[in-house]
């Protein structure tokens, strides 16, 4: 499976984006998000970005007020996932121009669309920023 889920959470612990690649019920999702937020948000910048949780790992990174949390299988490469998060942020930066929490709030479906371009079935399928953004740009033009 590789990537199990991708979460974006703000400093207050509110979920701003949640993408799951395996089926979880709403209660399970809520419980999981709660646990993860409690575990990760308390950590400082000087601590490492990997947290073991249940039977998988969470790789997270903080950008301004937003935490990007990715749940991965135990044998996934943590550093590669950090690079993936960075790529995601860069891509969004390029599209929104210095992306902020509000951009993601108001353009959630676009953020989802970008993720769908990058990750499929838990595997990273696209790593080129222009390739990721070209369908969105096309859609923006037509609408």
């Amino acid at each position: 499976m590789g990537i199990r889920f991708i979460l974006m959470v703000n400093k207050q612990g509110q979920t701003r984006l949640a993408q799951y690649y395996e089926w979880l019920t709403l209660e399970e999702r809520r419980a999981l998000e709660g646990e993860i937020v409690r575990k990760c948000l308390a950590r400082t910048e000087q601590q490492c970005s990997f947290v073991e949780h249940r039977n998988y790992k969470i790789v997270y990174r903080r950008y301004a007020s937003l935490f990007f949390l990715v749940g991965v299988d135990n044998d996934e490469n943590e550093l590669a996932i950090l690079e993936f998060i960075h790529l995601l942020v860069e891509t969004m930066d390029r599209h929104f121009g210095n992306v902020c929490e509000l951009d993601i709030m108001f353009h959630l479906e676009k953020a989802h669309f970008m993720l769908e371009e990058m990750v499929m079935n838990g595997c990273i399928v696209e790593t080129s920023k222009s390739n990721i953004l070209s369908p969105i740009q096309l859609m923006d033009k037509t609408s």
């Binding site: 590789g2 044998d75 595997c123 990273i124 399928v125 696209e126 790593t127 080129s128 390739n131």
Partner: peptide
């Protein structure tokens, strides 16, 4: 390379 990368991604998961 994108196609190869996708295929390898599949094999990586399968071979686990």
């Amino acid at each position: 390379p994108i196609i190869v990368s996708a295929v390898i991604g599949v094999f990586c998961e399968l071979s686990l």
